[in-house]
Structures are given as structure tokens and as C-alpha cells.
Amino acid sequence: MSKYFTNIYDTVNTLWTGMRITFRHMMNIKKDNVTLQYPEERWPRPERDIGFELEDYNVIRTRLHVDIDDCIGCFRCEKACPVDCIKIDTIKAGRGEDIPEVAHTGETSNGTKKGFVVSRFTIDMSECCYCNLCTYPCPEECIFMVGGPHSSKHPIDYEFSEVDRNDLIYQFAKKLTPKQRNDLQQPKEKAKA
């Protein structure tokens, strides 16, 4: 019989303990909250070095970016890409010659004279395997992974989902109208002739 009453007492006691705990959590929600309101708030991006030399290679491989004004159209990144997700087309132009109609500058920021107008530079980020192999051959260092030593050139961005798969094919070259493309190709043929 005393067991019966001890059981009732224990039940009430332990239930009350549990209720106190949940009530305390409810009242301290501002402090205890673990949910992050994702689009508005984000966890801090981990800063870590994964590379061989800290200054050069602490890149968290987030996303490829191309400074198209510095690109000389040498195709080395396209050849280096193991999954062939980089596609480049070029049109021959005068070496070091500015073509203001298509916003083409003749020199890169390193002072190299460009011989081509890059008419197409696409990276299919849905195919990209983030191997970083395309960034080493680049003589102008214009293709790079966002972040790390390049974080000053482009904001860090590792959240780039799209609704349509085709939106993951990033166009870096300036858009050329068919007429502009034609005009660029004409002088070459004239010179030949």
C-alpha cells in the first residue's frame, strides 16, 4: 500500500520536474534558440587552410569566376578542365587594340596585349567538379575560385542554386549581337583578301 502512494508521489514529482524544464526552455527561447533563419542569417563560413602554402592555397573551393577583361583567350583552362565544362570561343582582333563597340580592352591588368576578342566563355557549374585545375595554367590569373586570396576580387558565394539547370551555365563573355560578331569577323577576311 505504501508502494502505491510512493508511486503516485514519484509520478507527480517527476512530471513536475519535466514541466519545469520545458517551461524554463520556453521562457529562455531568446537565449536557447538553435534555429537559424537561413536566408537572413547564416553560419559563419569556415576559414580553413587546406593547401600546401598558406598564402597561395587556402581556398575553400566555392565557385569559379572569370575576370573577362583580363582573359586573353589562350584556351589553357579549357584544355585543363577534366570534365570539359569550360567552353571558349574567340575572334581574332588586332593585338593590343581597343574595340570600344564591344567594350574590348586591348591590354590586361598585367599589361599583356590581347590578340583575341573572347566571344564566348561559359562554365557549366553543374558539371564543374571543383578540382581547381583550370586556375593553375592561366597566365593572367583571371580564372579563380572565389574566396581565399581572391576574396577581394569577388564576394564569396557558395549558395548558388537555380530553378533551371541551364541557369547554372555561367556566361562570362560580353554578349555580342550578330552584327557585332559580323563586324569583328569582317576585317580579318578583308586583311586576308
Binding site: 520545458t22 517551461f23 520556453m26 527561447i29 536557447d32 534555429t35
Partner: peptide, 8 residues
């Protein structure tokens, strides 16, 4: 329920 579970 959310507040008791430390959610929002």
C-alpha cells in the same frame, strides 16, 4: 511546442 524544443 517550438519554444519548448528551443526552436522558433
Amino acid at each position: 511546442s517550438a519554444f519548448m524544443m528551443d526552436r522558433l
